[in-house]
C-alpha cells in the first residue's frame, strides 16, 4: 500500500493523529489537514486515492468539502469517506451526488477505518 495516498481531514488534532498513525503503520502515505480549505489545496496537489473527512468542521463542513472536490476535474473522482457523529445527516441522494463512498460513525474504531479505506481503494481500483 506504499503507493496509496490518504488525506485525513478533521479539526480535532487527536482524531487526525490516531487515524494517521493507524494508516501509516499499515503502509499508507498519509497527509493531514485541519479544515476544508487546507484539504482542498492538499487534494489538488497530492491527488490522494481517498479522502477521509470529518462531517462537522468549522470554515467548511465535510459535505461542502465534497461539493468543492467535485467542482474540480483533478479532484472530482476522489472517493470520500465521511466521519460523523450524526449518521442520519447524510441522505442517500447526497451520498450518490457527492460520491461519498462510506460513512463511519463516531466513536469509531481505527481497525474499522483501515478496513473501510482498503475496501474503498480496492473498489475504486477495480472500477
Amino acid at each position: 500500500m506504499a503507493d496509496k495516498k490518504v488525506l485525513v481531514v478533521d479539526d480535532e488534532i487527536h482524531i487526525v493523529q490516531v487515524v494517521a498513525i493507524k494508516l501509516r503503520n499499515n503502509g499508507y502515505q498519509v497527509f493531514t489537514a485541519e479544515n476544508g480549505a487546507e484539504a482542498l489545496e492538499l487534494a489538488g496537489r497530492e491527488k490522494p486515492d481517498v479522502i477521509i473527512s470529518d462531517f462537522q468542521m468549522p470554515v467548511m463542513t465535510g459535505l461542502e468539502l465534497a461539493e468543492n472536490l467535485r467542482k474540480h476535474s483533478e479532484t472530482a473522482d476522489i472517493p470520500v469517506v465521511m466521519l460523523t457523529a450524526r449518521g442520519f445527516a447524510i441522505d442517500d441522494t447526497q451520498r450518490e451526488t457527492l460520491r461519498i463512498a462510506a460513512c463511519l460513525s463516531k466513536p469509531f474504531s481505527p481497525r474499522e477505518v483501515l478496513q473501510c479505506i482498503e475496501e474503498v481503494i480496492s473498489h475504486s481500483t477495480a472500477a
Binding site: V18, Q56, A85, S109
Partner: peptide, 27 residues
C-alpha cells in the same frame, strides 16, 4: 445534536487510542 457531537468527539479519541494501545500500534 450538539451535545452528541461534543460528547462523541472526546469519546472517539478515547476509544481510538485505547484500541491502538490494545493492538500494539504504539511503537
Amino acid at each position: 445534536s450538539h451535545v452528541s457531537h461534543e460528547l462523541k468527539t472526546p469519546l472517539a479519541s478515547i476509544n481510538a487510542y485505547a484500541e491502538m494501545l490494545v493492538d500494539g500500534e504504539a511503537q
